[in-house]
Each structure stands twice: as structure tokens, then as C-alpha cells.
């Protein structure tokens, strides 16, 4: 059951990223290009995705447990830490530079050529580098402020 849901969810996610244009780097960069020819398409993507998700969160509130068992994710501490801020700023800079974020980098893997593969390899390396980076900010106590 869990395996089926994970496969189905990943497939729908990939299909949505393809149909919406999130895999198109120029569309993403057009959305971020507020000083150039601004492309508002991503607002429709985000709006379309948030709508069912908002309903899903409401349903989850009224249910005891997920269909495949286990429990719903608890509410995380509502604290904007420096790890969150700095990480998001770093992520955003890379997102603007290439027009790709983690989901679309995988969704476009079969048609993205060597460029897509190289991006994925660099992203995975970056994810590995995040481990010592996070340890460092935790050690110094800076990350949680």
C-alpha cells in the first residue's frame, strides 16, 4: 500500500511538473525576471497546487491516521532559524541561475541531456556538502538562531 502510494504520488508529481512548465528553465527564470519580461505562469502553478493541498491539510486534521497507517506529520516549531533563511537564499540563487529545482531536475532527466545529468550530479554533491555545513552551524549554535 505504502509502495503503491509513493509510486503514484511520484508519477503525478512528475506529470504535473511536465504539464505545468516547471521543467522549462526559461519559464522559471521568466517568473523570477521581474525586471525583464516577467512571466506570471508559475503563480498559476503554485495556486493550482496549493488549492488541493490546503484541502488535504484540513482533511488530515479530521482524520486519526493516514490510510496506509502511521501518523500525520506534527506541526514543526514555527521558528524562522538562520539555517532556514540562509539555506533558502542559497537555494533561490541556484534556482534562478539554472531555472531548475530538485523536483524538475528529476522529472526532466529523460529529456534534459547531459546538462540535466550534470545538474543532478552537482545537486547531489551539494546535498552531501549540506551535512557538514549543517553540523557546523549546529556546533556554533548559529543555525538555530
Amino acid at each position: 500500500m505504502r509502495a503503491l502510494i509513493a509510486t503514484l504520488s511520484g508519477s503525478l508529481f512528475g506529470l504535473g511538473l511536465l504539464v505545468s512548465g516547471m521543467v522549462d528553465t526559461t519559464r522559471v527564470q521568466g517568473w523570477l525576471d521581474i525586471f525583464g519580461e516577467w512571466d506570471p505562469t508559475l503563480a498559476f502553478v503554485l495556486g493550482g497546487a496549493i488549492l488541493p493541498m490546503a484541502i488535504a491539510w484540513r482533511i488530515a486534521e479530521h482524520r486519526r491516521a493516514p490510510l496506509a497507517g502511521g501518523s500525520f506529520p506534527g506541526r514543526p516549531a514555527q521558528k524562522v532559524t538562520s539555517d532556514l533563511a540562509v539555506g533558502s537564499l542559497i537555494f533561490g540563487a541556484g534556482w534562478g541561475l539554472a531555472g531548475l529545482c530538485p523536483g524538475p531536475s528529476l522529472a526532466s532527466l529523460t529529456f534534459g541531456g547531459w546538462e540535466g545529468l550534470l545538474f543532478l550530479a552537482a545537486m547531489i554533491t551539494g546535498m552531501l556538502l549540506a551535512v557538514p555545513a549543517r553540523n557546523l552551524t549546529t556546533l556554533t549554535g548559529l543555525g538555530q538562531r
Binding site: D83, L84, A85, V86, G87, S88, L89, I90, F91, G92, A93, G94, W95, L97, A98, L100, C101, P102, S105, L118, F119, L120, A121, A122, M123, I124, T125, G126, M127, L128, L129, A130, V131, A133, R134, T137, G143
Partner: peptide, 14 residues
């Protein structure tokens, strides 16, 4: 490569 590294580090840190 630069963009990939930034996306990887940043998204995990955040």
C-alpha cells in the same frame, strides 16, 4: 555545476 551545488546545499540546509 554552480547552480546544482547551490540548489543542493541550500535546499537541504533550509
Amino acid at each position: 555545476v554552480s547552480a546544482g551545488l547551490l540548489v543542493g546545499v541550500g535546499s537541504r540546509l533550509a
